Simulated assay, not measured.
Amino acid sequence: MAAVLTLAKKQSQRNKSQLISGLSVIILLAVSGQCAAAENEQDTKYDLSSYTAEQAYDAGRLMRAQFKDSMARPYLKYSADKGNANSAYLYAMDIVSSNPNAETPELAREYLIKAANEGQLDATYYLYKNGTWFRNATRLKYRNSYHDGSIELAESDPGKASFNLYRYYSDLNNKKSSYYLKKSQQYLYAPAVLQSSIASFDEQSNPKLNSKFIRDVEFIANKGYMPALRACVDYYEEKNKFDQALEWKEEALNYGDLMSLASLAKIYAGMVPSYSFVKTDLIKSYAYLSMYIDSAGKNRFSHLYSMMENLYSDISEKMTKEQKDKANALINKFKEKQVIFYNYDLLWNS
């Protein structure tokens, strides 16, 4: 048990170091003035010559997770063209997500193949599962590459490797699929723990947890795994235990959950009926609104951004200078802890 706990701790530390690395790049961007470019200017020119492929990937990945897609793409493409396979995959999938009702666009195919050929397993998985434009022999090649690459991964990351093999066998061999899912759980690989705890999904594809496994999910949530944090919120809200749901929303802030900023800002402004038991706290609401507006872009969830701006303006008019000073002090606490706000999705860990 000590060994798996050590693995979990190391994973949490890796996640935090990745975020801090991304923060350093964003600070550099702000200093150089490039972050001042309008998000909707698709033809904005970026001088990225001073960036390594990894730095550009960190910057693009974080911008995309903050809904600054048009700013992120040049960084991801630059990084991909310099040989970063993760960037090539993320750039391709960003193109795919921009064309949800179409077949995989040609440009996305190009970068998916580039990523897969450089050993990016998520790209390999996508091509074998979705590469309908290939001949059967080519898809089989990618399927075998995904399997073999996952076997090789076991030496450095056995939890993820086992989870990959669970996915590989999910539509081929139920017995082997279950075996590898359990094996991944033994390494406390967070996606495996959460997957094993899901009873069903709601209409928005959010997981509904089996009550028997809520402690397992809380364990990985406390390690900072964002989907587990959100699953805990949903679980307790469904049980009408909104006081516990509130605690998990606040905990998610400590790990940089951008959407929790928006949610809690409304709760502390007294705007959410199911949380009416929460005392109105304009200081917290103002701080959370300010951090959301400073962190988020408008390429996605633009309506939410406008709502946050309007609420920020309304609350600001009601607050005294002393209250604003206290709100700024709260903001500074998050800065001192180097919390970076972003929206976790399935592509975050690519």
Rank of each mutant, 00 (worst) to 15 (best):
L258S: 05
Q185G: 01
Y236G: 00
R230L: 03
K298C: 03
Y288V: 14
L194E: 07
S197A: 12
A2R: 14
L347F: 14
K129N: 14
V217M: 02
D122N: 09
L107D: 08
Y286C: 01
Y89I: 00
A161P: 08
T124G: 01
K239G: 05
S276Q: 12
A37G: 01
A245H: 04
A190N: 08
D148V: 06
L23S: 13
M71V: 11
L62W: 06
K16D: 04
C232Q: 08
G131K: 07
D216P: 01
G131R: 15
Y46V: 00
L165W: 07
E336Y: 05
M1S: 15
F301N: 14
L23T: 08
N222M: 09
N101W: 06
R167I: 13
K16W: 06
G33R: 04
L62I: 15
S177E: 03
S97Q: 07
Y166F: 13
N349R: 15
L5N: 15
S290N: 12
Y126S: 12
R109H: 03
N173V: 10
A231P: 07
I26C: 00
D43Q: 06
A252I: 02
Y125N: 13
K249P: 00
I95Y: 08
Y305H: 11
Y312G: 12
D345Q: 00
Y166Q: 09
S306Y: 03
K114N: 15
L172M: 04
L282M: 14
S196H: 10
N222Y: 04
K279M: 01
S98R: 12
D325G: 00
A65S: 12
Y187K: 05
E317H: 05
A221Q: 07
A38D: 09
S150D: 09
L282S: 03
N210E: 10
A296P: 08
S285W: 08
D314Q: 09
Q34C: 04
Y312A: 05
Y275W: 01
A8H: 08
P74T: 05
L48N: 12
M307R: 06
I151K: 15
L311G: 11
A161N: 01
S306Q: 10
K212C: 01
K182L: 14
L5V: 07
G224H: 02
S350G: 14
A3V: 05
K212E: 04
S49E: 14
K279D: 07
S285G: 03
A329V: 04
Y189K: 03
Q204W: 02
V278D: 02
Q13F: 11
A53N: 09
V233N: 10
G131P: 12
L165A: 10
A88V: 01
A329K: 14
P158Y: 08
S79Y: 03
R143S: 14
I214G: 02
L62P: 00
K208N: 11
G297H: 03
Y235I: 08
S49H: 04
E238K: 01
S12C: 05
E336V: 09
E250K: 15
S156G: 11
F213D: 07
Y89K: 03
A327G: 06
D234R: 06
S87Y: 05
S306C: 01
A154S: 13
I20D: 13
S12E: 09
F301Y: 09
